[in-house]
Structure formats: structure tokens, C-alpha cells
Amino acid sequence: MREQLQNLLEQRVRQYVSQARNNLHDCPFIEKAKESCSNRGAEIVKTKAEGKITNEGKNEEGEEVFYQVHYNFLIKQQNSFFIEERVENRKAEFYKGVLVTDEELSFDSLGVSKEKEMLVENTNEIDRIENSDGEEERKVFRYDRLRAVQYAERWWNDYNPAYKSFEVDCTNYISQCVHAGGAPMHGYANRSKGWWMRSNNWSYSWSVANSMRLYLPSSKTGLRAKEVKEPSQLSLGDVICYDFQGDGRFDHTTIVTAKDAQGMPLVNAHTTNSRMRYWAYEDSTAYTSNIKYKFFTILDDQ
């Protein structure tokens, strides 16, 4: 049964990519990616995709298959080429070997809703991020941007078993990247204090997007950051925070891992796992016209 489903799935993925190449509009995921490229003077010149079953089962109508499509977009911008990678999560239903439905599972939007739920549950704690840094020994470090980016590249589509992972994993992943760059943890074991993860416990600032956005510019020791006005001012290893609804609660976090031909950031992220994705997220299912951004450059201690 699994081999049959895998064969059906591989046929579906080939059909899906072929439709995208022919500019058919029943591939909204890829259509949005094309539009995002066009907005910045770039184009997708080649698309490659591979499908992988993540779960399967039966329902009253037949078989249902949850799967991931791993995309490679070869993008040309001016005289430069780069590859963007992204993982789309989908669900397909088959009846007697015939495809009945196939739809995207919008984990970008799911991540936002889950993040909002967490914020509602912990509003008081998250809004009261404490930085009693003067009470602790000053932790001096020089941020190793190369190591942060190397970590981001290694784990963009995987989960380091040394850390707990979350259904909404974006900020946890960014914290790991920045920590790999040398940023020291501190504040254990008060979850509303400092920035840390240990065993099965962690600070809000480590794992919650809105909490990290509050923590970065207010910290006075260890991990510190300065807000800048424009994304072009960011360097590799810097952080972008996203408020998709524009309501003051930030839902997503990414790390800069490259620059495009115009000097604008390309980012890696978790939740909808992405690599070398254009920073603005205009092709995200969570994107709205009210979106707001915060751009943070990580500071060295001198």
C-alpha cells in the first residue's frame, strides 16, 4: 500500500511542478513565489520538487496522505543566480488510486495562530521580560556570524536533537542559530528573565517571537541587539521579526543567511521551513497588507 501511494504521490508532484512551469493558476504556492520574485526584478528560471510522505491513513472516502514537497527554485536576479529552498506541507486524498483532493496545509498561518494562543495565555509574563543584567556577571562575547549562518544552513530543514523542538519552532530555531554564534545564555530558571534553554525548560525570549522582539533591544549583557530602520542595513546572522497582522504582537522570526543582487536579506526559518527566502515574506500565507517588521543587528561586547 505504501509503495503504491508513494508512486501516486510522485506522479502528483511531477504534475504539480509541470503545472507551475506552465503558469497555471492552481499552484498558488508557486504563483506567489513568482510574484515575489517579479516585485524585486528577479525570476524563477527552474523549479525542482520532490515529495515525501509524512503520514497516511484511511477515511470513509479512501486513503489520505500527508506529505511534504521540497522545492528548489533557481532564481536569477540581474547577473546573479541563487537557490531558494522551501518545504510545503500538503494533504492529498485518493479513492481507488484516483486523486480526489490535494491541498496545502498553511503552516505559516498555523504558526501565527498558535503563537497568538501562547501570547494570550502568557500575556503578563511575556510583556514583563526582565533584564536584571546588573545583578549578574557581565558576559562578554564576540558574535561569530559565520558560525551562526553555518548552523542556520545545517538545521534549516531538520531539528537538532540537543534542543527541544516545537510545533511553532521559528524563534527556537533562531535562538539556536544565535547561540551557535557565541551568544551566552543567562537568566535560568526564571522563564520571564534572560534568554536561555535548559533540558525541558526555556525562557519566553528563547522560544516566543514577541518575547524575543522585546528582549533583543532591551538586553544589556550577553545577547544584545540594536534596531535599524532598513533591511539593507542588516548583516549575515542578524534577525528580523514579523508582525503579520500589524496588531503589535510579533508572530515570526528569521535569520539573515545571505544577500541578493540588490543587497537585500535572504533568510532561513522554521515552522514553514525555508532557506534563502526573500526577507519580506510577501509570498507567505500569513502575509497581510498590515505587516510590520523589526530589524535587529546583533551587537558585540567590546
Rank of each mutant, 00 (worst) to 15 (best):
residue 117 E to W: 02
residue 88 E to G: 15
residue 105 L to S: 00
residue 83 I to C: 00
residue 65 V to P: 09
residue 110 L to G: 02
residue 65 V to Q: 05
residue 111 G to F: 05
residue 89 N to I: 11
residue 88 E to N: 14
residue 45 V to M: 04
residue 63 E to A: 09
residue 88 E to C: 02
residue 60 E to L: 14
residue 40 R to L: 00
residue 108 D to C: 05
residue 50 E to P: 00
residue 116 K to L: 10
residue 53 I to F: 01
residue 107 F to Y: 11
residue 87 V to E: 03
residue 109 S to M: 12
residue 92 A to M: 12
residue 109 S to K: 10
residue 127 D to F: 13
residue 63 E to K: 04
residue 50 E to M: 06
residue 72 N to S: 09
residue 107 F to A: 01
residue 62 G to D: 08
residue 126 I to Y: 00
residue 36 S to I: 04
residue 127 D to Q: 13
residue 62 G to Q: 08
residue 72 N to C: 02
residue 66 F to L: 12
residue 47 T to P: 01
residue 121 E to A: 13
residue 85 E to F: 02
residue 125 E to G: 11
residue 89 N to S: 15
residue 124 N to I: 10
residue 92 A to Y: 04
residue 44 I to G: 08
residue 58 K to W: 08
residue 98 V to D: 10
residue 73 F to C: 08
residue 47 T to C: 06
residue 75 I to H: 03
residue 127 D to A: 10
residue 91 K to S: 08
residue 94 F to T: 11
residue 81 F to C: 00
residue 70 H to Y: 11
residue 68 Q to M: 13
residue 55 N to C: 06
residue 73 F to L: 04
residue 62 G to F: 02
residue 77 Q to T: 01
residue 104 E to S: 11
residue 59 N to T: 03
residue 106 S to A: 15
residue 94 F to R: 06
residue 40 R to W: 05
residue 54 T to E: 04
residue 36 S to N: 14
residue 52 K to C: 07
residue 116 K to D: 10
residue 121 E to P: 03
residue 52 K to A: 07
residue 52 K to F: 00
residue 94 F to P: 03
residue 94 F to V: 10
